[in-house]
Design a binder for these strands. Sequence first.
DNA 1: TTTTTCGGGCAATTTACATCA
DNA 2: CGTGATGTAAATTGCCCGAAA
Length: 221
Amino acid sequence: MEIFHHNYSTASLELSIAVPGFSSSPSSGESCGGAMKELDINQVPSPIEEEECMEEEEEDNDSPNNNGIGAASAPRKKLRLTKEQSRLLEQTFLQNHTLNPKEKDALAAELKLKARQVEVWFQNRRARSKMKQTEMECEYLKRWFATLIEQNRRLQKEVEELRAMKVAPPHCRQPLPHTMCPCCDRVITTTTTLLEKGPASGASAATTTSTISSAPITRPY
DNA sequence: TTTTTCGGGCAATTTACATCA
DNA sequence: CGTGATGTAAATTGCCCGAAA
């Protein structure tokens, strides 16, 4: 079920059914900075600039018993990206959601990181992006559901009114408000028609038909 | 044409760290 | 100030798929 496969470079949202009950927590991941201090614990505790510390750390990463990816035996220490590294990664991600090996190596060299670390960052970034998109779709479907509930309530009310009137003349028939189809972004025009089946069955003869117009409507996000 | 190998992507998970009550 | 709960993001694991040999 890989709905989003290889579509990260497109700006449009592919509508898929999000998992219901997906509680969205305020994610600071998209900003890649958030409220967290940019305090790099991999750096030596000194008032040196971040970049200088990262260079020092990079030297560590190249040593056999380092803290980087693939380090053996030694308890793994977590890399903390500097603001500048995060900024450049984010900027690159916005241009392209995947990197080919050349681009990856070049970016890694520029950031003084390992190619694997750049690769992992992009994987996690894609995952965060997808999660955010799923949350947005979930919110959209919730709103869509609410409009359907409301429309259903109106229709029920109208049915009751029609039943009370028995049969309404054609000029009394009013077009109902339309809603949007979540699948194709088109307006669903709902009209109510009375089937004249005779005096006895008139009370239960109201049917509703829906047609989808060709006018696309933009999503609420 | 079929099989094998390899590289890359993804989902799920773990882990390290920061923050807050 | 120390501590546990919680959130975030880096990193790991294992699986799948497509391309090349």
